[in-house]
Design a protein around this nucleic acid. Structure first.
Lengths: 124, 124
DNA sequence: ACCCTGTTTTGAAATCTGTCAACCTAGAGG
DNA sequence: CCTCTAGGTTGACAGATTTCAAAACAGGGT
């Protein structure tokens, strides 16, 4: 089973859409969501994320040379991004390709929305 | 100079609106933006942020009892939120009041916007 | 002036993070 | 089977983070 490790952050479990400015977030929800922000809280990972999100998919071999960092270090950061549920990877022959997980991205965006909208009817 | 420390993150310097999915973020920009995400990457701070953002302003005395943490620890997290440029504080008599910095919030949201992605072969 | 309460600062301990060198694994190709 | 290259894993270490107790600071009231 060459399956990659499942993301630590279960996107289905993360409260999906209420902006953090809409109402005080409870502890459990914060515990689930924080790792996603944490993953983006490092300049290297933020840049990796941006590079990945800017194209449909990208090979590690194109990511690594963009940094003054060793291969293992890039690999480590990519792993954290994966565990945060933000990206997905797939091996195809010799190379490994990364792509963004749109749901995760959308959720993060929704969380930061300036809530002028009442959450009416939003509860699925 | 008893003024509170200026935010470490200079909101005017932070590239203001291009979503990270629009084009690869350069190193400088990532260095400036990452601390904001980092500040939200802790469950306690995320919850504090949510509590602050959910109301026009809120007293530390209403924030502290919501956690099983000492006063100094809450104060420390609030400081990090301040230094990230995400919130503002003001002493009024005995109590200190915190409120969100809408510009910072808006910027973070803009960064995560799903830019109607120029998918395959996209010229930026 | 003194004390009381609310908040921040300081100092210190335990834990976590970012990074690299060295090593291991997965496919491709002879 | 052997070797080569692309990536990931392990182990180690310097530096950062989280947390609390103790002390300091800021206003208000007596």
């Amino acid at each position: 089973m060459s399956k990659q490790a499942l993301p630590v952050v279960d996107l289905n479990a993360v409260a999906c859409c209420s902006p953090i400015a809409a109402s005080p977030m409870d502890a459990d929800q914060a515990t689930m969501v924080a790792p996603m922000f944490k993953a983006l809280g490092d300049p290297v990972r933020l840049r990796l994320m941006s590079m990945i999100a800017s194209v449909p998919e990208i090979c590690v071999c194109d990511l690594t040379p963009a940094f003054d960092l060793s291969g293992p270090t890039i690999s480590h950061h990519l792993k954290l991004l994966r565990e945060a549920g933000l990206v997905d990877s797939e091996r195809r022959g010799t190379w490994v390709w990364y792509r963004v997980r749109p749901e995760a991205f959308r959720q993060l965006g929704a969380l930061l929305e300036v809530s002028s909208a009442p959450a009416a009817g939003g509860t699925a």
